[in-house]
């Protein structure tokens, strides 16, 4: 479980996050949704330690993370898997080396054991047999899936996904959503997903946190989100022609 308590973050005079308190539950896909510029990426960067908050704290299973020394954070970092928006695969390495990287850095496994784990993870994301491909040879969807394989290779307790299906076609986006949900439930991971994809909200939003103007504006799940009477949330969810028609139906 990840607890975010009273987080405030400013850039200059601009308040990006204003006293946000939220809990991300274990074994569930916890979504952070909101318009571009609402502060959701900043919140995720604070959770992963890429930004420090001005006020408040983030703790992982009651272990403080924000505003603590880097040496103390490292143990928690080793339990994290992060899927970046662009994949952030290391372009100097091939697929196998990318997925094997966390194992090389943090385990004493033999090469055969590591290879077995890499093949397992690649198989898990339906990409068996592409071990030796360079990252430049991968499509957008494959990159995301390899990044997921890398994120889960070291059996993380916490998985962070920053807009996992942005820039993907609807079928691949659906595949990625399914994969993240399955992995979350299968390994009982605390998964936090940053998205503004409505399909993801409806399909995998086991808990949904709507951020509006830097504040936690609404909290619920994919069942209650369609019936919510929050005006800002409805403006966000039903802003396109397609979603407006769905709402009418």
């Amino acid at each position: 479980m990840i607890k975010v308590e009273n987080i405030t973050k400013k850039f200059g005079e601009k308040v990006v996050l204003d006293d946000v308190t939220v809990t991300f539950e274990r074994g569930k896909t916890n979504l952070i949704i909101g318009q571009s510029g609402s502060g959701k990426t900043v919140l995720m960067k604070i959770c992963t330690g890429l930004f420090d908050p001005d006020n408040g704290n983030v703790s992982f299973d009651n272990r403080p993370f924000s505003n603590t020394k880097e040496k103390r954070r490292i143990d928690i970092r080793k339990e994290m898997g992060v899927l970046f928006q662009g994949g952030a695969l290391f372009d100097s390495m091939n697929v196998e080396e990318n997925v094997m990287f966390p194992l090389n850095m943090f385990t004493d496994m033999s090469y055969e054991e590591k290879l077995e784990r890499v093949n397992f993870c690649l198989n898990r994301v339906n990409l068996s047999g592409i071990n030796k491909l360079a990252t430049s040879e991968l499509s957008g969807g494959m990159m995301k899936r390899v990044a997921i394989a890398r994120a889960i290779s070291n059996s993380p307790k916490y998985l962070f996904c920053d807009e996992p299906n942005s820039g993907l076609d609807p079928m691949t986006a659906e595949l990625i959503d399914d994969l993240i949900k399955e992995i979350t439930e299968e390994y009982n991971i605390t998964t936090v997903i940053n998205t503004h994809d409505i399909n993801s909200v409806i399909k995998i939003g086991q808990t949904i946190n709507f951020i509006y103007k830097g504040k936690l504006w609404w909290r619920g799940d994919n069942k209650s989100v369609m019936k919510a009477d929050n005006r800002e949330l409805n403006d966000f969810l039903f802003s396109t022609e397609l979603t407006k028609r769905i709402k009418l139906v």
Binding site: T48, R77, M80, V82, G86, A88, L89, F90, M105
Partner: peptide, 17 residues
């Protein structure tokens, strides 16, 4: 610089490297 703008450095950092 390329590693920085493509978040590869961030990826290393969040992994605990």
């Amino acid at each position: 610089g390329t590693m920085r703008v493509t978040q590869q450095i961030d990826a290393l950092k969040v992994m605990g490297v």
